[in-house]
Nucleic acid binder design. Sequence first.
DNA 1: GAGTGGTCTAGACCACCCC
DNA 2: GGGTGGTCTAGACCACTCA
Lengths: 236, 236
Amino acid sequence: MLKYQQIALEIEKHIEENELQQGDKLPVLETLMAQFNVSKSTITKSLDLLEKKGVVFQVRGSGIFVRRHKRRGYVSLLSNQGFKKDLKDFHVTSKVIEMDVRKPTQEAADNLNIGLHDDVYFIKRVRYVNGQTLCLEESFYNKSIITYLNNEIVSESIFHYIKEALGLKVGFSDMYLHVDKLNQEEAAYLGLKEGAPKLTVETIFHLTNGQPFDFSKVTYNYEQSQFFIQANNELL
Amino acid sequence: MLKYQQIALEIEKHIEENELQQGDKLPVLETLMAQFNVSKSTITKSLDLLEKKGVVFQVRGSGIFVRRHKRRGYVSLLSNQGFKKDLKDFHVTSKVIEMDVRKPTQEAADNLNIGLHDDVYFIKRVRYVNGQTLCLEESFYNKSIITYLNNEIVSESIFHYIKEALGLKVGFSDMYLHVDKLNQEEAAYLGLKEGAPKLTVETIFHLTNGQPFDFSKVTYNYEQSQFFIQANNELL
DNA sequence: GAGTGGTCTAGACCACCCC
DNA sequence: GGGTGGTCTAGACCACTCA
């Protein structure tokens, strides 16, 4: 683990353990440099990482402060595949409905940048939170990258498996959001009425080298759809 | 303008003007260092900025590549208040329905971190894209920060005014998303039927010093709700 | 193994906040 | 004006990719 990552983790841990609140001030740079025995740029890099994650904000000439939001029960849209973290106070389960190797749909092939005759793992599952339906998820994994999957892996965390067992590195993702009305099939899976509101999130996950490996389409139960995004606006 | 920002702008411009596509390779670091006559860290900082913006991705041992998404007509959820940019091919207008100085609701006061007896500017407007309703927006501005607003400013870009005329710096924002059904009033403004799907986005904008100055609640016409997010997943 | 991006350092100087 | 974060440099060394 790199120094700046390690330091970021420790600072984050420190904030959590001491239950620091929005606006609480952290030690000044010089103190942190001494405390972790590293150069200024390394500390700065740690803090930039935490700023990107929405954990702190830095004010020139003033200090480094804790960033926290007040509302509970919201899922971060950006910490991908992170229901475990965000809903840690809740009980999230999932039921696999279909899982097989097949040829992709035109849509999946386009998004994964593969041909119609390449193989994909197709997984369809319903996820529940506290016994209520949370979402219906359909995923296509490029089989030439994700070479093996089974029911056990799919029931647990697929991404954990991809990172740890396959040794792949997830880089970035493109997400597309739509709001519409549930069709009959979706309504049935989610236990709602046809025509009820839905939020659809399509995500294309890429490895660090830019190769797309997963196209997934998730339809959320609108009654459970509470999402949260922390944005930084300094991008010009 | 700082060097690294300037360089980032030029690289971005270069990508746009040459219509580079996803996966196209940019010059190597050493070349860029020479070209802009700056040190390695400065170039790195420029590229980190562009990576955060979703314009490029960097692969260790390989190169720097252009990041582009394929779909058109999607609005970035993160480039706040950025309809102008994203929908530049479209015609976005807005109609101010209400605008006055008043006392905040309990909800607005909580989110703006002010008291019930402090003043806020309240603005309610409907925005249109190509003649169709896009959203209904209700905003509360902390009057002790945003000291003056008028109809002309509100019809144009409020954020441009805040930055340029008031000299304030926008730092970060917290966004909360919900999906639900339109009530009667919202349906009337959006020209839809009561009970139709809606996406509600509540945003709390903060200055760089962490002070919240704007709480806004936007209800989108689901027929126009196509949003896009570029995420980076390397946050541990 | 050559090429390429990433980390880390030490230090100078700058820009901003607040008293 | 003192305190504090941000920018920028030059250079050493490390880690990954790909032929």
